Simulated assay, not measured.
Amino acid sequence: MAGRTARLVLLAGAAALASGSQGDREPVYRDCVHRCEERNCSGGALRHFRSRQPIYMSLAGWTCQDDCKYECMWVTVGLYLKEGHKVPQFHGKWPFSRFLFFQEPASAMASFLNGLASLVMLCRYHTSVPASSPMYPTCVAFAWVSLNAWFWSTVFHTKDTDLTEKMDYFCASTVILHSIYLCCVRTVGLQHPGCGQCLPCPPCCCC
């Protein structure tokens, strides 16, 4: 009985994921996207779109189909607000106003600044902590793992694709796993100060 219930829960969850979000399930949104793609994303209309598209948009991977989805998203949001409804999600995300080629400008900037802070602290760690310190390699590795995660977070919030989404989530998971590892190493080092490599990091490595 428990196994059957678990299977039903999993099936329900899969169905919910497959059905998308409220906004992109709306017929008005789907019809808008379909008509926009038919009108602008083939033949001469597509060539015209590409000729007037800013170079930074094309370099960032924004396509005609992406542009249609973006414009139709706001058309749908406008109808929701006009009828007194709450703003819906689209494809599992809340709608954000695009700035230049940034899909989520505030989140992209926050990720970039976090990465920059990690880089600055890594440089400070290099200059203030001897390479012979017991926890030096572990802390430096953690800094690079964090930098990599913030890089992909910035890319993901700049342009959401299947690849950037997977890289963002995967790299964020590596930071969590490495944090757990670092915490365990430091805890063991504090309890057993004679265990060499397990000595705690200098305080600045966690900044």
Rank of each mutant, 00 (worst) to 15 (best):
G3K: 02
G3N: 04
R4D: 15
T5E: 12
R7C: 02
V9A: 10
V9L: 04
A12S: 08
A15G: 08
L17S: 10
S19M: 08
G20T: 07
G20A: 07
Q22T: 06
G23P: 01
D24M: 06
D24G: 02
R25W: 10
R25K: 15
C32R: 11
C32G: 00
H34V: 08
E38Q: 14
E38V: 13
N40H: 10
S42C: 11
S42H: 05
S42D: 10
A45I: 05
L46T: 06
R47W: 03
H48V: 02
H48W: 11
F49D: 10
R50N: 09
M57R: 00
L59S: 12
T63H: 00
D67M: 09
Y70C: 06
E71R: 15
E71T: 05
C72I: 03
M73S: 04
W74D: 09
W74L: 09
V75P: 02
T76K: 03
Y80R: 15
L81V: 10
K82I: 07
K82P: 04
G84V: 13
H85W: 15
V87C: 07
P88F: 01
G92S: 00
W94H: 11
R98D: 09
L100S: 13
F102S: 01
Q103A: 02
E104T: 11
A106F: 15
A106I: 14
L113D: 03
N114H: 01
N114M: 14
N114W: 00
S118C: 02
L122P: 00
L122A: 08
H126I: 12
V129T: 01
V129F: 03
P134M: 14
M135V: 04
Y136N: 03
A141V: 12
A143F: 05
S146G: 06
N148D: 12
T154S: 01
T154K: 03
D160W: 11
D160H: 14
T161Q: 02
E165P: 03
K166D: 07
M167A: 04
D168F: 14
Y169P: 01
F170C: 01
C171T: 06
A172Q: 08
S173F: 15
V175P: 11
H178M: 15
L182W: 02
T187V: 08
T187H: 07
V188F: 15
G189Y: 08
H192G: 00
C195A: 14
G196K: 15
Q197I: 07
Q197R: 13
P202H: 11
P202F: 00
P202G: 07
C205W: 03
C206V: 06
C206F: 12
